[in-house]
Design a protein around this nucleic acid. Structure first.
Length: 804
RNA sequence: GCUGAUGUGGUGGAAUGGCAGACACCGGGGACUUAAAAUCCCCUGCCCUCACCGGCGUGCGGGUUCGAGUCCCGCCAUCAGCACCA
């Protein structure tokens, strides 16, 4: 071919992006007779800094799958939107005295332009924006449904409070004792907060995991976070006459309980203050514990501390023995009953505590050495020193003791979860208003559905007030309203929702984004749900992913969505680190700007590099040098046009290479092994170069395989070569299994497991006739000599190993 | 501390128990060029050697196997998550 222009991504990339925009060829179709495919990436938070190189990693990966599915004949919905409520925008607004909505709009426009520059095949006609009143109308609608069903409640409780953000945080948002967003130390503060009862769904969230194809580590993390444990609650009688209820996962060790521990916040201390001889010491300990943040209380607690309560003792219900009661901060009020029975012989924490304070131990499960360490094995141990449980295995003993306790009315079987309810109020401006009204007479009343959305009023200042109330609280015109119930004067809720609200259901809105009368139409939901493949970061496993599963299950229960789970498959990408191997951040000065990379190398090379840089699920440092290598590959691909022949088919000598590549690339895309898929295409390209020519037939296949990763260059080549049509509309190539086999294969020749040579042998050589074949070869005779052959191993296509 | 993941050339990384280092990056050499860039070709794990031959090599120590980067046992290191969950 003559007159081939230079490869110029700056010219061809905008050309094809414009073409896709104008034709809408990548958009989802309304044709419900087609098989559907719904891939999803986590919609970005449109920060002022613009796109990060991390975004395109996930986006390109799913774009490859989306583009391949279109070629396979699916109706693909690959949507994009913006999770735009949130603190950075609000903080920017506070600092610069601009309305957050204005900042948000600018940022979204910038993001969209950056995303389009990278050639992602999103359907931009279905964009979500969580800050759009048409969108958050339905976020509020879902909240009201939760409120209606009793799953939203107000609670006066100690919450995590960030003094810097002046904002309450969910437990899940506190990372290592500091605020996840700003890094300030989190303190405790009592505040009346809206809570969502995610704990009501703990079992359903757990069971649902068995029905979906999430990668195993995501399932493990969610299971651990939900933290189901089976055990029993047992009542101990105290010498004060009270009953002290404990939760234990090891009721089988009840005979070994030699003391009890209550949390410093346990009500018993105040209720029986007069009976506690050393109340002063206990109160002092409690104050010390309260001063510690959760972080200190746990982190600094390598050595166990505690105070023994003088004046109250407990009676072990099975042995009748009197045992002491201690106060220690290793027992938390927020889990179980805030009190435990301590079995130092068979629990590591109890063991450490008992050692520190010289408390006796009783071995009740034989098999370990309790002088050395607590014996916690629950498989092989056999009960001893345990009355009627003696001789039983742990599992059996557990069952028996629970039956016994239930019969005697001393306790019962109990399932506990670590999962805690979701703190849903924020004292901030830039969030969805909570659509509730407080009436003196009627209490909390829902704003009627037909009045939604409750929109954010314009305010003068976006800062939370000094007492920590939302900026909305000073908007008296907005706050003062009437009760929808009785018409009396009433006040609006001024707290707003957390950022997690809008992101908990955004994938539903994509399905029917312009619907004014419903969240989304049921026939559309039935066609598109569930999301077939959702890729995102591991950091969202226990926050966003769990919250959105909770909301979805709730919506399923009220009949608003047709599937019990939102996402069928969940995969996860690794982080992109800076060139120095550290996390990319402004403060470290190692941030790579995607725009700069596209300017220098083009979007296709950028996409290619992000997929080639290493294993998709692992953290990889960025390397601009390596990225240039990917551009080199595209330059070489482009120059294939100079060596293209008029032949239509695949040449005989490359038939095997081409079909092997079709198989490998297709399978590797599906397994998210993008790096080896690209390596296979590089190898094939090298074969074309070795040969010095490529046929039209080979070229068609090659650019089709490469198209999902590098869509612009391949479309341009398709056009320049005069192949007709567009790659996005062409079918994905199929391989011919017969073409994969070669006539001869090279095998390794091993003597006693050491490689001594290589040989070409017929590919159809079988195990049966291999020994005769090899022993007749001169090369083999030379290596073996006259030593007797003790063993002969032949692995077809791989190697032969002769043991002498 | 617990849990999980990872550990392979100068670098990023390949490798259903079967030829370790695919594919790239960096580096070196050559061709082309007045020259440079670009491009093309060759070399590139380490040691010994002019070269051949050979030896050593997947964090460390054992084991299973004809054969181990891969499986088992015990360590070490790094990273991530969790923070005493009874």
């Amino acid at each position: 071919m003559n007159g081939i222009p230079r490869y110029n991504p700056a010219q061809i990339e905008p050309k094809w992006q414009k073409h896709w925009d104008e034709t809408g060829v990548l958009n989802a179709s309304n044709d419900h007779t087609m098989p559907k495919f719904y891939p999803l990436i986590e919609f970005p938070y449109p920060s002022g800094a613009g796109l990060h190189v991390g975004h395109p990693r996930s986006n390109t990966a799913m774009d490859i799958i989306a583009r391949k599915r279109r070629m396979e004949g699916y109706n693909v919905l690959f949507p994009i939107g913006y999770d735009a409520f949130g603190l950075p925008t609000e903080n920017y607004a506070i600092k610069n005295h601009v309305h957050p909505a204005q900042v948000t709009q600018q940022n979204i426009d910038h993001f969209r332009q950056q995303l389009k520059r990278l050639g992602f095949s999103f359907d931009y006609t279905r964009e979500d924006n969580t800050t759009d009143p048409k969108y958050y109308k339905w976020t509020q609608w879902i909240f009201l449904k939760l409120f209606e069903k009793g799953l939203a409640y107000k609670s006066e409780m100690p919450i995590n409070w960030c003094p810097s953000c002046k904002c309450g945080l969910a437990n899940e948002e506190v990372v290592g004792g500091v605020c996840e967003r700003c890094g300030s130390e989190v303190v405790r503060k009592v505040k009346s907060q809206w809570m969502l009862k995610i704990t009501d769904y703990a079992q359903k969230l757990l069971d649902g995991l068995d029905t979906v194809d999430f990668i195993e580590k995501v399932k493990v993390q969610q299971r651990n976070w939900i933290g189901r444990s089976e055990g029993a609650e047992v009542d101990f009688t105290l010498t004060s006459g009270d009953k002290l209820r404990v939760y234990t996962t090891r009721p089988d060790t009840l005979f070994g309980a030699t003391y009890m521990v209550i949390s410093p916040e346990h009500p018993l201390i105040e209720n029986r203050r007069s009976l506690i001889a050393n109340y002063e010491a206990v109160a002092a300990y409690r104050e010390a514990a309260a001063r510690k943040s959760d972080f200190e209380r746990t982190e600094l607690n390598k050595d166990k501390t505690g105070v023994r309560i003088e004046g109250i003792r407990a009676i072990n219900p099975v042995t009748g023995t009197e045992i002491p009661v201690w106060v220690s901060d290793y027992v938390l009020m927020g889990y179980g009953t805030g009190a435990i029975m301590a079995v130092p012989a068979h629990d590591e924490r109890d063991w450490a505590f008992a050692k520190t304070f010289g408390i006796p131990m009783i071995e009740v499960v034989a098999g370990g050495n309790i002088e050395e360490a607590a014996y916690t094995d629950i498989q092989d141990g056999v009960m001893v020193n345990s009355g009627f449980l003696n001789g039983m295995k742990v599992a059996e003993a557990k069952k028996s003791i629970i039956e016994w306790l239930t019969e005697k009315g001393l306790g019962e079987k109990k399932v506990n979860f670590k999962l805690r309810d979701w703190v849903f109020s924020r004292q901030r401006y830039w969030g969805e208003p909570i659509p509730l009204v407080k009436c003196e007479k009627c209490g909390w009343v829902a704003v009627p559905y037909e009045q939604l959305p409750v929109t954010l009023p314009a305010v003068e200042h976006y800062e939370p007030t000094d007492d920590g109330e939302s900026p909305l609280s000073v908007m008296t015109d907005w706050v003062n309203t009437t009760c929808p119930h009785c018409g009396a004067p009433a006040k609006r809720e001024t707290d707003t929702m957390p950022q997690w609200a809008g992101s908990s259901w955004y994938f539903l809105r994509y399905i029917d984004p312009h619907n004014d009368t419903e969240l989304a139409a049921m026939d559309e939901l039935k066609y598109w749900l569930p999301v077939d493949w959702y890729n995102g970061g591991m950091e969202h496993t226990t926050l966003h992913l769990l919250y959105s599963r909770f909301w979805h299950k709730f919506l399923y229960d009220i009949g608003a969505v047709p599937t019990p789970e939102p996402y069928q498959k969940r995969t996860s990408h690794g982080m992109i680190l800076g060139e120095n191997g550290e996390k990319m951040s402004k403060s470290r000065g190692n941030v790579i700007n995607p725009d700069d990379v596209v300017d220098e190398l083009g979007a296709d090379a950028f996409r290619l590099y992000e997929m080639f840089m290493g294993a998709f699920d692992q953290a990889i440092p960025w390397s601009t040098e390596s990225a240039r290598g990917c551009r080199r590959f595209l330059d070489r691909t482009w120059r294939l046009m100079e060596m293209m022949t008029d032949e239509e088919g695949v040449s005989a000598d490359l038939k095997c290479d081409v079909h092997t590549a079709i198989k490998k690339v297709g399978e590797d895309y599906e397994r998210m092994k993008y790096n080896t898929a690209i390596a296979a295409m590089m190898s094939l390209l090298n074969r074309f170069y070795e040969k010095g020519s490529v046929t039209r037939g080979e070229m068609k296949i090659f650019i089709q395989l490469l198209n999902p990763v590098a869509p612009h260059i391949t479309e341009e080549m398709n056009e320049l070569c005069g192949f007709g049509g567009e790659l996005v509309r062409k079918p994905w190539p199929e391989y011919d299994p017969a073409a994969l086999v070669r006539d001869t294969v090279e095998v390794a020749l091993q003597i006693c497991g050491k490689v001594r040579g290589r040989m070409n042998v017929p590919a159809d050589l079988t195990r049966e006739n291999a020994e005769a074949f090899f022993m007749a070869q001169d090369e083999v005779k030379k290596l073996v000599g006259d030593k007797p052959v003790r063993k002969f191993i032949f692995v077809p296509g791989r190697l032969v190993n002769i043991v002498v």
